[in-house]
């Protein structure tokens, strides 16, 4: 059997694939987190909750309304975006003039409430979500077996990240967004409704998280705490990448997933903490983060 660095190739590549999938989720989540942070100066603790809500809306939709996976992929993010917009308009909006820590505390409370409610209603155990038939099965690549759905998750996340990146870096709207991130007051003085922009960006970030949640539903079981543990790793990703850069958020997401995958191969016990160890090292060596502009 072929080996890679002393490990049977299928095992090695299998772990790498798992790592890439986790990395895809990290990337989509940290992208949304970075967008929101840039414009709102808010660490959205409820980002993991939005991810969980995406998965749950998708599961509930299938179970009670017969909404299929493909429709969910659009509907769930929209629903969660709407929810996020309501949160921003009713609560977060009141905090922009205060210390930024309050936003973190508010979204932390929000995450507790929403996750508590779902635990109360659905218990802590997971609900299965079937892989859509078009994406079931797998292909034998000769050196490994590749489940189609997993390939789809990576592809869909990559496309989503790239499209978002293109919008931000290459369009007029993106230029306004970058400018408002730097100096919101001046952009207001140009006649732009920055408050509306903030609301939309928060909704979009929530939608991205929910999109990742829908993608995750068939892989992990759908449960109320699926977002809570993930988001802390994503925080580490964001610190590693540096909040300043959109591409940094995407790259460090995928990178960290792969590092985790490799760690599972060589040092399985450390795989759950490797993200935090990398974060600590990056902070010691380059406090602004790998792609960060300012400390």
């Amino acid at each position: 059997m072929m080996e890679i660095l002393g490990i049977p190739a299928p095992v090695f590549l299998g772990q790498l694939l798992l790592g890439a999938i986790n990395g895809a989720f990290y990337a989509v989540l940290s992208l949304g987190l970075a967008l929101i942070f840039g414009l709102l100066n808010l660490i959205n603790f409820a980002h993991g909750t939005f991810y969980m809500l995406g998965a749950f809306v998708s599961w509930l939709g299938l179970r009670y309304l017969g909404i299929d996976y493909w429709t969910s992929l659009v509907v769930a993010p929209l629903a969660v975006a709407l929810f996020g917009i309501v949160i921003e308009r009713t609560m977060l909006k009141r905090l922009y003039d205060l210390d930024h820590l309050y936003g973190l505390l508010l979204t932390f409370g929000l995450a507790l409430v929403i996750e508590g409610v779902f635990r109360q209603l659905h218990g802590a155990s997971g609900q299965p979500y079937a892989i859509p038939s078009a994406l079931s099965g797998g292909v034998n690549l000769g050196f490994m077996y590749l489940p189609v759905y997993r390939a789809w998750v990576i592809l869909a996340s990559l496309v989503m990240c790239l499209v978002t990146w293109l919008i931000i870096e290459r369009t007029k709207l993106g230029a306004l967004l970058r400018a408002a991130t730097e100096n919101p007051d001046l952009v207001r003085a140009f006649g732009v409704n920055v408050s509306l922009m903030i609301t939309v960006v928060f909704g979009f970030g929530a939608a991205l998280a929910a999109f990742a949640g829908v993608l995750a539903a068939p892989i992990y079981s759908v449960n109320p705490i699926m977002g809570a543990n993930l988001i802390i790793v994503v925080f580490a990703v964001v610190v590693i990448g540096g909040m300043g850069s959109i591409m940094g958020a995407i790259l460090s997401g995928f990178l960290l997933g792969l590092v985790e995958g490799l760690t599972k191969v060589y040092w399985p016990e450390a795989s759950s903490v490797v993200a935090f160890m990398v974060m600590a090292v990056v902070l010691m060596v380059k406090p602004a983060g790998l792609f960060g502009r300012n400390a």
């Binding site: 609560m91 505390l105 508010l106 932390f108 409370g109 929000l110 995450a111 507790l112 409430v113 929403i114 996750e115 508590g116 409610v117 635990r119 109360q120």
Partner: peptide
């Protein structure tokens, strides 16, 4: 408890 705690936070 979790829900109440979250509400108090908010």
């Amino acid at each position: 408890t979790t829900i109440v705690q979250g509400l108090i936070f908010i």
